[in-house]
């Protein structure tokens, strides 16, 4: 795997990776920054990756980057310039109110829970695969997903009893 295959990988998967990162971070600028940082770090090791595992490897690296203390620290020290940032432009203000509320609640979830929910309901991974990405045990994944959904249920208006059977 050389430079050409790296370029091909970026061309093919950058959209999917940035979309995944947007769902994690909630901001397009952060997502692009995160994916770019990860790809810059991955490129020197590109020769060691196989085409079959490259996407999963980079996705895991993006998740780790999102969960890392270093990024949390750097994000905490950035002062917002204004409310009309370019990354907010792709959110339609006329979107359904329930969807907006769900999205806002999703952004408030703890990072591990949010990553587990996104991996389950966007990337369609199994508990085992999510455990591999997050580097935790399967029961922990179930707990993250269950708690994440329980926190989101108010936005969708589902009664609490219905969520207890999840898993």
């Amino acid at each position: 795997m050389g430079a050409a295959s790296f370029d091909e990988f970026v061309h093919e998967h950058q959209q999917g990776l940035v979309r995944y990162a947007v769902l994690l971070s909630g901001s397009r600028a952060d997502a692009e920054d995160m994916v770019q940082d990860v790809l810059v770090r991955v490129y020197p090791r590109w020769e060691r990756l196989t085409p079959a595992t490259a996407y999963a490897y980079v996705r895991r690296a993006v998740t780790n980057e999102y969960l890392s203390w270093r990024r949390r620290w750097s994000n905490r020290h950035i002062r917002p310039v204004g409310t009309d940032l370019p990354e907010e432009a792709h959110f339609d203000p006329a979107r359904d109110e329930a969807d907006e509320r769900l999205w806002r609640l999703l952004r408030k979830l703890p990072r591990q829970q949010r990553a587990a929910v996104v991996l389950r309901y966007y990337e369609d991974l199994t508990d085992q695969e999510i455990a591999g990405v997050l580097g935790c045990r399967v029961p922990t994944v179930r707990s993250h997903v269950s708690r994440g959904l329980a926190a989101l249920r108010s936005a969708i208006g589902e009664p609490e009893r219905a969520w207890r059977n999840h898993g």
Partner: peptide, 20 residues
């Protein structure tokens, strides 16, 4: 519902990262 919302949000995103 959650799947739909996540897919819609993701579909709005356009990125312009390039390999070179």
């Amino acid at each position: 519902e959650l799947r739909r919302v996540l897919a819609e949000r993701a579909a709005d995103v356009r990125s312009s990262l390039s390999g070179p």
